[in-house]
Design a protein around this nucleic acid. Sequence first.
DNA 1: CCAGGCTCATTAGTTAAGCTAACGATTGTG
DNA 2: CACAATCGTTAGCTTAACTAATGAGCCTGG
Lengths: 144, 144
Amino acid sequence: MTAKRVPPAQLAPQLRDAITRFNRRVRRARPVGDLTVTQLSALTSLKLAGALTPRELADIERVQPPTMTKIVAKLEERGLVQRTPHPTDGRQVILAATAGGLAVLDQFERARNEWLASRLAALTEEERDTLRRAAEILQQLARA
Amino acid sequence: MTAKRVPPAQLAPQLRDAITRFNRRVRRARPVGDLTVTQLSALTSLKLAGALTPRELADIERVQPPTMTKIVAKLEERGLVQRTPHPTDGRQVILAATAGGLAVLDQFERARNEWLASRLAALTEEERDTLRRAAEILQQLARA
DNA sequence: CCAGGCTCATTAGTTAAGCTAACGATTGTG
DNA sequence: CACAATCGTTAGCTTAACTAATGAGCCTGG
């Protein structure tokens, strides 16, 4: 397993195409009546952070504030997220996952990963390790 | 660089989140007046294959036929793709990139990869190799 | 040899996801 | 205390994807 020299200009389209297709495939595999990938990602971030303002959540999710307004609105409709006014700053809002939100999250955590996890399980240990390292690098690139 | 054991159930959300955010970031970085990532991907596939029916192109792009109809319509509007009737089968249509399409593709090939390529160039040779191998695995997963 | 079934592409209609621009309320400051 | 900055939201647009239904053309079995 020697590292091959990879010109960035050549890797860029390869990586882009691979991720575009992979992403389409993953997004399609959502249970009926379930949350979308975007909504799940936001709810998960909220769960991890405990409580956030819309702006903070938008930053974490790499999305513009108005987009986050919409995402949160959908989550709120279902009672998965709660808006409470900021104690001292009247402009701000505090978002938090409700008990129902956490329950739904836990409940679907397994289901939503089922397709991907089963595919991953079919890979070799080494391939999974490659993906794990790639995931870290991609997060870092997304942050740049 | 020993391979760590990676449970699939744990890797799945990691990978999904990383790719979701990376994808958002890449899609945002498109030159004004330019083609979208989706359109570029389709046009590129068409260039590589030479000529395809809409169905074939939809399969390659992991998209449903009606979606491909729309993508092709936009490319055709700009004169980048040409529809010609199938010689023997009146139902089918043959799609091919026009000379203009190929020119635009070549012209923007560098520009569209600029952001990503410059980021990739900042990585180590080893990291790029990890991404290259990951891209292959992801393509394979998307096909499953 | 042609009627019915299949395939292909498209149309129609919906939903999600993202953006920018503009706005109203609130805060903080010079 | 007027005014600038900040926060969240609204409004309006675009892209991208889906399913269901439609119409045209092909093919095959009786």
